[in-house]
């Protein structure tokens, strides 16, 4: 028993050591200039020499300005240096107050009109965002970065290796980062934050829906031309009709399952390819065409048998 405990402790010790090493390695992987910023912005605390009091001082970092360096190194913008997007004057501390006023880049500033990124349809996405409920309410204050964390962004929906579950979770996390976080929500508005559980209490099996479909499934219109719809509709226009998803013409086919359903999609057959869409089961939308045929043959046979029997009974009675 004691031996076991020792083994476990040794194992845990090495786990902690290796984790620490990985974290340090990630920090070390950052470019020199990024490491300079990460010295403060990569941690919860930062220290500096206070020239007024002439003392070393340690302060808490504003949680909104902490950059997860591990996530940064995994994100699509990992090769960028902080100065590529932020003013180089940030190099010194204390940062100059007017730096706060510098306008932030939007995705289009870099990705707009670029053939390399044409398949992402950034321009179409911008039009959709411009017509979304968020943009209408908050104007220029609402940019891409409100939902997409540029410091850690990595494509999930457009990654062929992603499971539907991962797509759903990553996507919903974007909405929840404000709608389930009062302090971030209040950056944009003083409105009372709607309680998601009570505003969705009409939805049967709420938890199941939240886990397996994205918010945008009901809160954006179906578009064929764009991969991920960005036009968030006002709540009155969200999908409320169960059969919009739970039917052969399920809107999910044009939305969530667009990513994997390309294989054997057929409008007449519904999700009969559901066997390949392993993770997805939607009542009313997944129907197995072979089972349908077998059941119809069985029922047809039974009805014919009964009809013949009834006919013989009538004939015999006469």
């Amino acid at each position: 028993m004691r031996n076991k405990l020792v083994y476990i402790l040794v194992f845990l010790f090495f786990q902690v050591i290796s984790f620490k090493l990985i974290a340090q390695e990630d920090q070390a992987n950052l470019s020199k200039s990024n490491r300079h910023c990460a010295n403060c912005h990569g941690n919860k605390y930062y220290s500096f020499f206070n020239s007024v009091t002439e003392q070393d001082q340690r302060k808490r970092m504003n949680p909104f300005f902490i950059i997860d360096t591990v996530a940064y190194k995994q994100g699509v913008h990992r090769e960028f240096s902080c100065e590529d997007c932020h003013a180089s004057e940030y190099n010194t501390y204390p940062h100059a107050p007017e730096l706060k006023l510098e306008p932030k880049f939007s995705c289009l500033d870099c990705h707009g009109g670029d053939e390399t990124y044409a398949h992402y349809q950034f321009e179409d996405i911008e039009i959709e965002v411009d017509n979304s409920v968020h943009k209408n309410a908050f104007g220029f204050q609402f940019g891409c970065a409100q939902c997409h964390d540029l410091h850690s962004y990595k494509p999930v929906a457009r990654n062929k290796k992603s499971l539907i579950k991962e797509i759903v979770s990553a996507d919903n996390q974007m909405c929840l980062s404000c709608h389930n976080n009062l302090s971030k929500y209040q950056i944009l508005t003083d409105h009372t934050k709607p309680e998601l559980l009570s505003t969705h209490d009409w939805l049967p099996n709420q938890e199941l829906h939240f886990m397996h479909v994205r918010c945008i499934e009901c809160h954006t219109p179906v578009t064929d031309t764009i991969m991920v719809s960005h036009k968030i509709l006002p709540k009155e226009k969200a999908v409320h009709l169960c059969s919009d998803c739970h039917s052969t013409n399920s809107i999910l086919r044009g939305k969530l399952y667009k990513y994997t359903a390309k294989q054997l999609r057929s409008t007449e057959k519904g999700f009969y390819n559901s066997m390949f869409l392993n993770e997805a089961y939607v009542i009313g939308a997944n129907r197995n065409i072979y089972l349908n045929i077998i059941s119809l043959i069985m029922l047809g046979g039974a009805f014919i048998g009964i009809a013949i029997h009834i006919a013989l009974r009538i004939i015999k009675k006469k």
């Binding site: 049967p204 009709l241 169960c242 919009d244 739970h246 052969t248 013409n249 009542i283 009313g284």
Partner: peptide, 15 residues
């Protein structure tokens, strides 16, 4: 009705 329901011809409303 749930399995074969259709938006245009719901035998019984889904809910």
């Amino acid at each position: 009705s749930m399995q074969y329901g259709n938006i245009d011809y719901p035998l019984i409303p889904f809910k």
